[in-house]
Amino acid sequence: MPLRLLDRLKAPFRDDWCRYCRRTMNHPHKRLFVIPEMKVGNYESHTDADYYREALRPVEARGDIPPGTYACRAVEYHCPQCGRRKVKLNIFLPVRDKIKREETILFDNGKRLEFLWN
């Protein structure tokens, strides 16, 4: 019983935690993207998956991101038990060897962002 309670307490704080099955999810996909239209000083928050369909462009490494352009690290979480998918978008501004974190967006319905891995 104490373990179950601890799990429940942990769940809201972990992105890779399936709240339905209460187990750790796999993360089969990770990818780095650049958001060319979003430049430093013009950041706007978007929570609509369709926006990211249009705006994100995949890049191989951080060195490929032009200066002053926002980037996004996308991670997909997959629950092996119930099959649910979540996608976490970590939006940041790369500044030389540092980063300025802007926002982390979690999409519970990962199927809407499947285009990211194609």
């Binding site: 430093v40 000083g41 200066p67 002053g68 352009t69 501004l93 500044v95 030389r96």
Partner: peptide
């Protein structure tokens, strides 16, 4: 960091 990024972008 924002200012350095802006300066880097303009210099580029």
């Amino acid at each position: 960091l924002t200012a350095i990024s802006m300066a880097d972008m303009m210099a580029d």
